[in-house]
Design a binder for these strands. Structure first.
Lengths: 372, 372
DNA sequence: ATGAAAGCGCTAACAG
DNA sequence: CTGTTAGCGCTTTCAT
């Protein structure tokens, strides 16, 4: 706190020159000491650091960035913070950022083309060192602006056509197959699927995974209704499903909000879950643990996703990767058993809920990521 | 897209000098044109802008900040992104930021003193123009670092002792009184309160508001159990309440997660809500709408909070406020009726749920805030 | 109204 | 190993 008293009676600029002067060294040496360059004489270094601490000197990052050409900022573009899928990602990303002396420039597109464009512009203006785009849909032309400036990019789930940018591919099939087989094992044969907005690649992929998984075990993937990945869509979907002449005993949803909508509608109609109807979600957002009953769901680990994204960016920037190879990462989804699924009503002799699992197991993703 | 083709065969730096050269003006004029200084000849300005657009030139914010001394970044310190209270705040804050050409430096303390210190350090290093601290608890000494550098600060809910920084005071009493009176009107007389961690000012204030509200209508505020503002605490609280010899018929919770925990525990114990027990939350996080039944809760508008915080910062920075007056803002809380409250079991002749209200009404906060 | 030039705070050659 | 110095890209006097 010494510098605080100092502060009270002098308000001169505290810049690296001031530090240098007081430590009786050149600015170059001061700079080196501060940046822990090993060749600097320990004596001098100590003198510099003493002054730095006494004065509470904090280097000006802008100036640093200007001369070094690296801002130590990673951009993170998401759709919407209020989408429950993102908070965990942002938190994990930030944890990694602080640990690596990066700042994060967080931006949301709120599904507005103008905001998308603005996001990209902001990234460029602030000269970010890399951008993670977790927004399930982004105009190709905007990316060109980033690519043109050779800003490292990480993407989730874009097609295989884009070259020169890292890509995290989601293995939807794995988790969805587990979900379908879990339901089948509980004697469900009439399994419905509530899809998401099919113009989204991710929603389409989930639906396809569902169909494939059903066919795989000889069940017809017929009962499909389209939702919107929101609560309302889930509610509407269950109403629609209720009108079907062959009523399903289980419903798999394209995301958790949809599943929560289904459960809400079931609650309103006094349909008991899981006794009358088994429900499975997708994503494993935080809320999935808090529903009643807790939701069985396919987990797409937001933590792992963030870790992979961050690490990919870091690899790119620190040049640990030769720039001409194709950078592919994979995130595998897995079923998390909770309490919203049970034996199918017809074949159920007694109420035997599936064993509850505390934590989920993952198959390790195909890339090494730093732990928390 | 013209500049994109240009880009393909020349990779020179696109800086303001390049713009100036191509527009056949001086860098000074280029700068003025880009910054829309009115005195610049329209002809020249147009020429400059043409080049800017063709080349896809984006000014370097670092350089700008360095010379102007203003970074156009606001710091936003929160406790934890995964705390459901924050996403809406962050989103609103960002919306306002983009609208005003600011960037936001988002930081979380995760209730770790080291991270708190780091947050402050990061703010200073990036030379933010102001900081909003929404973290219900922050060490005084850290603030000194910011105050010393005269960084404008906005705070939520700190005591009245701190001078020279803006403060948003929460009127807990208003909403909690409404909640208590709502329950009383439904013939509840044994109303329990599940408090939060009492070392938090905000938790303490809520408890005090509860006590005052009860006494006000002649009910003894005796049934108080302490939770932790998390789901688990709510669950434990209900168990504890169940052991009381005088069982309450309604429980008011210090925050929504607690209320959700209570509901979860009730679900597990087959206690029907609201028929057997009325539950009221506090905060009105997004999830409160999605519980079953939807949670009646005291709303502390996260949107309004963010708006006030941003506006306060802006006032400070744009110098619209004389720096010696005390800057106080107020946010009023209000009850939002949903479906988790009903007539007390004893005095209830039939099931008559309270009227459901779609949107809540607010008393306007005492300061003018920009709309979305 | 426009241009020349200084300089924001820092790092990185380069020279000693 | 240390110091001198030239910029990084921009805004802003100060002349014109």
């Amino acid at each position: 706190m010494l510098w605080l008293r100092w502060a009270s009676y002098s308000q001169e600029p505290m810049d690296i020159r001031e530090i240098a002067r007081r430590a009786k060294v050149s600015t170059a040496t001061a700079s080196r000491a501060i940046n822990r360059v090993s060749t600097v004489d320990p004596q001098l270094a100590k003198r510099v650091w003493k002054v730095v601490d006494e004065l509470g000197y904090y280097p000006n990052t802008q100036a640093r960035a200007l001369v070094s050409g690296r801002s130590r900022i990673f951009g993170l573009i998401v759709s919407e913070f209020t989408n429950p899928f993102f908070p965990e990602i942002v938190q994990t990303f930030e944890n990694l950022a602080v640990g690596n002396n990066y700042e994060i420039l967080l931006t949301s597109t709120v599904n507005d083309p103008r905001r998308m464009e603005l996001s990209v512009r902001r990234m460029i203006e602030r000269r970010v060192d890399g951008v993670a785009i977790l927004t399930f849909g982004m105009e190709e032309t905007l990316l060109e602006h980033l690519r043109f400036r050779s800003v490292p990019l990480v993407f989730v789930d874009v097609g295989p056509d884009v070259r020169g940018i890292a890509n995290i591919r989601i293995n939807y099939q794995n988790g969805i197959r587990q979900a379908v087989q879990h339901l089948a094992a509980l004697r469900h044969t009439r399994i419905a699927f509530v899809a998401g907005p099919l113009h989204l690649k991710s929603a389409l992929a989930r639906q396809e995974a569902f169909k494939a998984s059903m066919i795989e075990i000889g069940l017809p993937p017929e009962l499909i209704v389209v939702g919107d990945h929101r609560l309302e869509g889930g509610m509407r979907a269950l109403i629609e499903i209720g009108r079907l002449n062959t009523r399903p005993t289980a419903v798999l949803c394209s995301n958790d909000m949809t599943a929560i909508g289904v459960m809400r509608q079931a609650y309103d109609q006094k349909i008991k879950i899981p006794d009358d109807l088994s429900v499975v979600g997708f994503d494993d957002i935080r809320m999935a643990e808090f529903t009643m009953p807790p939701l069985t769901t396919v987990q797409m680990s937001q933590k792992d996703l963030a870790k992979i994204a961050f690490q990919a960016l870091l690899n790119e920037v620190e040049g640990r990767s030769t720039s001409h190879e194709r950078h592919e990462y994979e995130l595998t989804t897995n079923l998390v058993l909770r309490l919203s699924t049970a034996l199918a009503p017809a074949g159920r002799p007694s109420t035997t809920p599936p064993k509850r699992v505390g934590a989920s197991r993952f198959r390790k993703v195909s890339t090494t990521v730093q732990s928390d």
